[in-house]
């Protein structure tokens, strides 16, 4: 029983980080219909900024705050400079569907190379702000630390902030309206272009939080978030790709599913396990867990 709970807790911790990455991908997908592979690059750049700030100040929170700001700016910049230019030039056809995605892949390469130029390709390290020692009760050890708790709390905080913004504010309504029906949004006076930029900024900030949370006590390299991007993407697909709640649930399903498979079915391979979970979910629910149920159409 204790082993099961431990597995669950570990699953929830990694799942929370996947959820954040999935959220950042879904935020962009909803507003622009693009899978932003550059998100791994934006997040790694932001994480290096956090590393730099933590090195200089010793303050983790300051580092996180800097990463969030830089992540948001970077997200907005990518949308304004890259996406708008692309969409201005190509309007329809197969190329229009693929070009933006390829552009984000290219950008991922550019950002990784730049990070390598600035900080080098060797691993860097920064410490977690709180203990990563497993809790122990008597002589039983639960492989769950204060830092794991902090990760879950931070992810939960991000999700609460998003829930409030999306459900209770007129910015949130503008974001949702622009995502679902840009034309009706414009007819309602919403400046859809600016709203899309804000969506990308939110996505960038969320990706930065994910990057900073997953990196402590690990080796930080220009490629070290690539796997997170893939797991975030899988989580987003599990959640239906279009739904913010879906992204959160998808991340948790993937995190917990992976933890259970690794613990009970035994596999030394982290990577394929994610796709086993994805396959199981898509067999049961082909549209993802939170796929839009179309109601009546007439």
């Amino acid at each position: 029983m204790l082993a099961f709970i431990s597995t669950l807790l570990i699953g929830i911790t990694v799942g929370a980080i996947y959820s954040l990455m999935a959220l950042s991908l879904v935020l962009v997908w909803r507003s622009t219909r693009v899978i932003n592979f550059a998100q791994a690059g934006q997040a790694i750049f932001s994480t290096y900024v956090a590393y730099e700030v933590i090195q200089r100040t010793g303050n983790f929170i300051l580092g996180m705050a800097a990463a969030v700001v830089v992540g948001a700016l970077l997200g907005a910049l990518v949308e304004v400079l890259l996406m708008r230019t692309l969409f201005k030039r190509i309007h329809s056809g197969a190329v229009a569907a693929v070009a933006p995605v390829i552009a984000t892949l290219g950008l991922l390469g550019v950002i990784r190379a730049s990070v390598g130029l600035i900080w080098g390709n060797d691993g860097h390290r920064f410490d977690a702000p709180v203990s990563t020692q497993a809790f122990s009760m008597g002589n039983t050890v639960i492989p769950f630390s204060r830092f794991n708790l902090l990760v879950i709390a931070t992810a939960a905080l991000v999700m609460i902030v998003f829930t409030v913004i999306f459900q209770k504010t007129s910015l949130g309504l503008s974001l949702r309206a622009s995502a679902f029906a840009p034309e009706i949004a414009r007819l309602s006076g919403i400046r859809v272009g600016s709203i899309r930029t804000i969506g990308w900024a939110f996505a960038g900030a969320t990706g930065a939080v994910a990057g900073v949370l997953i990196s402590p006590n690990d080796s930080l390299t220009p490629n070290s978030l690539d796997l997170l991007l893939i797991f975030g993407f899988v989580s987003a697909v599990i959640g239906g790709l279009d739904s913010l709640i879906g992204a959160v649930v998808g991340g948790l399903v993937l995190g917990i599913g992976k933890a259970l498979i690794l613990a009970y079915l035994g596999s030394s391979l982290d990577y394929p396990t994610a796709f086993v979970v994805l396959a199981i979910v898509l067999i049961v629910r082909p549209g993802g867990i939170f796929s839009m149920k179309r109601g009546r159409n007439a």
């Binding site: 007129s170 309504l173 503008s174 949702r176 309206a177 679902f180 029906a181 009706i184 949004a185 309602s188 006076g189 919403i190 839009m292 109601g295």
Partner: peptide, 16 residues
């Protein structure tokens, strides 16, 4: 907007 509630659809009318 089918994905939004009736209330949110109405709110769009005055959002600006």
């Amino acid at each position: 907007i089918a994905e939004l509630s009736v209330k949110d659809n109405l709110a769009l009318g005055g959002i600006w």
